Computed example of a mutant assay.
Amino acid sequence: MASTQQRYMRRGVTKFFFLTTIAAPTNIPTRQELTAGTDLSKQIADIEGWSLENSPIETPDLGNKFSTSIPGEDKAANSALTFYEDLASDVIEALLSKDAVGYICILRKGDIPQSKSLDVFPVRVGSRAPSYSTGTEPAKFKVSFSISDLPTLDAPVPAAAAG
């Protein structure tokens, strides 16, 4: 019997956190580390990247007109977050200043403990620049990130704190 797929929209569900430290060598945060991080979700206007790409290696041979390939190196896509500027606060700008290091934690299906939908990207801020426009739109700035190590994908969301 086929199960019913429960589709959803990322807005209002997916969460983005910035953490300055994760103790585990697996780069999977504890609930305490996640809670100590900064939830960026409500300030994000646009998202780019945050995925792995593979660069295949061509393996043509004399015996075949078809060019085959094998998987090559993995690399992270160019990744960035665009934020709404806050007229009264510069908390996000200070947190994500050039060369800041930390972890972008993406809870793809929201904060559902033990759901294997947590992606953790070790990052370093490459640039942060305002987006200027004369149009009628909110003020924004874009933060570009370098992925500094192998991301941890499909990790379990940490268990909720005991209450």
Rank of each mutant, 00 (worst) to 15 (best):
M1C: 14
M1P: 08
Q5P: 00
Q6G: 12
Q6D: 12
R7G: 05
R7F: 10
M9L: 10
R10H: 15
K15C: 10
K15Y: 10
F16V: 08
T21V: 14
I22L: 12
A23Y: 09
P25C: 13
P25T: 14
N27S: 03
I28L: 09
I28H: 07
I28N: 11
I28P: 13
P29Q: 00
P29S: 02
R31Q: 04
R31L: 01
R31F: 01
Q32G: 06
E33N: 07
T35W: 10
T35H: 14
A36L: 13
A36M: 10
G37A: 01
T38W: 15
S41Y: 09
K42H: 05
D46P: 15
I47D: 05
I47Q: 10
G49W: 00
S51E: 05
E53V: 00
P56G: 04
I57V: 05
E58G: 11
T59V: 15
P60S: 11
D61M: 10
L62Y: 15
G63K: 13
K65D: 15
F66P: 15
F66K: 04
S67N: 10
S67V: 12
T68A: 12
S69H: 09
I70R: 05
P71C: 03
G72S: 07
G72I: 06
D74F: 15
K75Q: 09
N78H: 01
S79P: 03
A80L: 03
L81P: 00
T82I: 12
Y84F: 15
D86T: 07
D86L: 08
L87R: 14
A88I: 07
S89V: 11
D90F: 14
D90V: 12
V91W: 06
I92C: 08
L96G: 07
D99I: 13
G102T: 14
Y103W: 07
I104S: 00
I104P: 06
I106V: 13
L107G: 00
R108Y: 01
R108I: 02
K109F: 10
G110R: 01
G110M: 00
I112H: 05
I112E: 02
P113C: 01
P113E: 02
Q114S: 08
Q114K: 11
S115D: 12
L118F: 10
L118C: 07
D119G: 09
V120L: 00
F121C: 02
F121Q: 04
P122Q: 06
G126E: 04
S127R: 02
R128T: 06
A129M: 13
S131F: 07
S131Y: 05
Y132H: 13
Y132N: 12
T134W: 09
T134H: 11
E137H: 15
F141M: 04
F141D: 08
K142H: 03
V143D: 07
S144D: 05
F145K: 00
F145D: 06
F145H: 00
S146R: 04
S146C: 04
I147D: 04
I147E: 04
L150G: 04
P151T: 14
L153K: 01
L153C: 06
D154P: 00
D154L: 01
A155F: 12
A155E: 12
P156V: 13
P156F: 14
P156W: 15
V157D: 00
A160W: 06
A162R: 02
